[in-house]
Design a protein around this nucleic acid. Structure first.
Length: 107
DNA sequence: CCGTTGACCAGGC
DNA sequence: GGCCTGGCCAACG
């Protein structure tokens, strides 16, 4: 298993605890990249069920349009099940659930 | 090696 | 709040 950027992104996504979400940009910057597209690109390419990709959202709290495990509806349902709350507009309350990476690996 | 491809983001209108 | 634009950069053929 080569240590590609995609693999590192997936590893970071796995660190998000239940009840929290992270944005694409946060993950990209935690790894030292300005390009947030790589994060979505890495997750979509693999579609690995072991990765909690439903905890990765847009910077404004909206969900990915082409979520690969039942659409954004299923994604929202999973988040609600973990205790994540939404605004009336259907976006995640980032102020309450945004996860910040405090890991020594990326300081 | 080079062009294409993105589950993004910030800025402007 | 929405739509459009440009920039970003690893992976793949």
């Amino acid at each position: 298993m080569p240590a590609t950027v995609f693999n590192r992104i997936r590893g970071l996504v796995c660190l998000i605890p239940p009840g929290f979400v992270a944005t694409y940009g946060t993950i990209a910057r935690a790894l030292g990249y300005k390009n947030s597209r790589l994060v979505g690109f890495a997750i979509r390419g693999n579609q690995d069920t072991s990765i909690p990709c439903h905890r990765v959202v847009f910077k404004d709290g909206s969900l990915a349009a082409n979520y690969s495990f039942g659409g954004s509806e299923a994604q929202r349902h999973r988040l609600e099940f973990e205790g994540i709350t939404f605004t009336p507009e259907g976006r995640v309350k980032l102020s309450a659930h945004l996860f910040v990476f405090n890991n020594p690996f990326f300081s």
